[in-house]
Design a protein around this nucleic acid. Structure first.
Lengths: 322, 322
DNA sequence: TATAATAAAGGAAACGTTTGCAACAAGTGA
DNA sequence: TCACTTGTTGCAAACGTTTCCTTTATTATA
């Protein structure tokens, strides 16, 4: 491997001069600099990321921690992040390997964005204590080194329940998410509060874990107890898709017997028949904002910020008038 | 930051002893080792990735280069990779930032898997020349440091055309992919060869770029020229989805007037109505195999290998008898 | 008991950068 | 002419590890 040492020798200057030249410092004269650059190119010089980050104590890399890649969900999210980051000279890497949680403490990355409920809050806190900068998208944390940008789950869940009520539904069923998920907990809480406002509504809860399979199982349960049209709020779209799967094998019709609304507006939702009603939000904006807050934190421009992403209702033929 | 130096001082031993202890070397006695480990834990020691990789000239990280995250496509692929890699002590990071192509030459990663047609072959070759190990999944390359694992596009495309022919279609239309894509080129080539075997078939080509939008546009074109039932082979599922979108707004029915088959069997394809006929292959296996070949290359167990992933036909109601 | 072999620990160089400081030359003003 | 800037370059330490080689202490062998 050719290093600045080789360039220095070749150019007959010291390694510090080479370093300055390579970094475009004005301390070295134009001619020397040009000569050094030429030699560097000729020798096919490539800097060592390890050596540089060892010395500079930074990598210009940001990590995003994701639980799983499933949903097409993440495409826009990552896009939003990358744009913001690359404008500021940072690279984004997606971390989801078993040991990737080490990247932050070992200073392989300069900061991290967390969207992974399995990442322990305790651990995040200890990173922050050590001075590392974080943005959390999936929990609430209050610390000078942590910013947060959360979905407005409460508003979303309330919109969903109100929508079902508005369409005349008197029997409402919610398919819950996993306890580990902050979003799931917030949504459920808002649902419980919302249904209380409708004294005539019969309200039922069914377990779910945000995956398709549990949506199918919830569908089965609903089918078994079926007596009259029911409005179902699946706490995310993925379970709603699972429920579609189930009912496509039965004699019950979505939008007639079973009315379904989801949450997230993932890509598939617009392609299934009938179009799934759901709660929408800008994934792109979510990602961009998270990155922005992280950069603010890293560049010490701001103290931690707490932002919220707005949501809106998307109507669909999966919910019709009762 | 606490370093092995601090531990050494605290324990009253040399830094080399600490290093050996931390790495579980048998050179240091059990008691000393235990004492050092205890102190390390107490001081909250965390190694520096930069320092280690500077010295060891490896990072135990593999990078996967992806064009875009769109499809739910990538979930299983990455899963397959991660499993294989983590079994062998490697981490996977997804690279798709603007400057992330520098990760390999700067030795931020130990090897790379390429699934990004915009990555120039010339550049890949220069990396390989420098001794870096690669696996390509989206082009053909022959070099001692490059393994490849490609889809059997030809078999897939042939299956698709035969399927349409078998269902009695005499007018067949193919929606092409972008020239930059190796898969697109291979599929098209096989299509052209396959249709020649059916002298009675009228064959038409329409431009496409693998994105939904172009599928919609292709649909429009087909609609305009519509005279009789037509069989359409979209060179990937995403365009097929786009075409569904288009025809859902028309009076032509998929599976009756327009018969569609795709390629990739992405997740959405099983949820749209009618079920999209398509060409399937195991994304998980594709990813796992790519990782395996890369590890073989890195660990010098093998010389470069050229593997192929089998494909199969998935029937769907989007193609019916004419 | 003297010597060789073995075990445990330490010294120091090396990996490839960055950067504060020193050195030196040439030009400036008094 | 002298001291003083200013501009250009070099020296050397530092970042935090790993690892080869040496030293020292211990035990086994003759």
């Amino acid at each position: 491997m050719v290093s600045i040492k080789d360039i220095a020798k070749q150019a007959g200057v010291s390694i510090s001069t080479v370093s300055y030249a390579l970094n475009g410092s004005p301390k070295v004269t134009k001619e020397t600099s040009a000569r050094i650059l030429a030699i560097a190119k000729e020798l096919n010089y490539i800097p060592s990321a390890a050596a540089r980050s060892l010395k500079k104590r930074e990598t210009k890399i940001i990590g995003i921690y994701l639980t799983n890649y499933s949903g097409a969900f993440y495409g826009q999210l990552l896009q939003g992040m990358m744009e913001t980051l690359s404008e500021n000279g940072y690279e984004l890497i997606v971390c989801s390997g078993k040991e990737s949680h080490r990247f932050l403490p070992e200073r392989m990355i300069d900061g991290a964005i967390i969207l992974d409920a399995t990442y322990e809050t305790k651990e995040l806190l200890s990173h922050a204590e050590r001075g590392h900068k974080l943005v959390v998208m999936d929990r609430r944390m209050d610390h000078p080194n942590i910013s947060q940008v959360l979905l407005d789950n409460k508003a979303g869940a309330t919109l969903a329940i109100d929508y079902l009520a508005e369409k005349g539904h008197r029997k409402i069923c919610v398919v819950k998410g996993p306890d580990i998920s902050f979003d799931a907990r917030q949504r459920l809480e808002a649902v419980q509060k919302a249904v209380q406002r409708y004294s005539h509504i019969e309200y039922i809860e069914i377990d779910g874990d945000f995956h398709k399979q549990s949506g199918e199982e919830a569908g089965k349960k609903i089918h078994q107890d079926f007596t009259e049209p029911v409005g179902v709020f699946c706490l995310n779209d993925e379970m709603a898709i699972g429920m579609y799967n189930y009912f496509s094998r039965t004699n019950l019709r979505i939008g007639e017997d079973v009315h379904i609304i989801g949450f997230d507006n993932i890509e598939v939702s617009q392609y299934i028949q009938p179009r799934l009603a759901t709660i929408n939000y800008s994934k792109h904006k979510w990602g961009a904002l998270a990155s922005e807050l992280l950069l603010n934190l890293i560049q010490k421009k701001h103290s931690p910020e707490h932002e919220r992403i707005n949501v809106s209702l998307i109507e669909g033929d999966s919910v019709r008038n009762r």
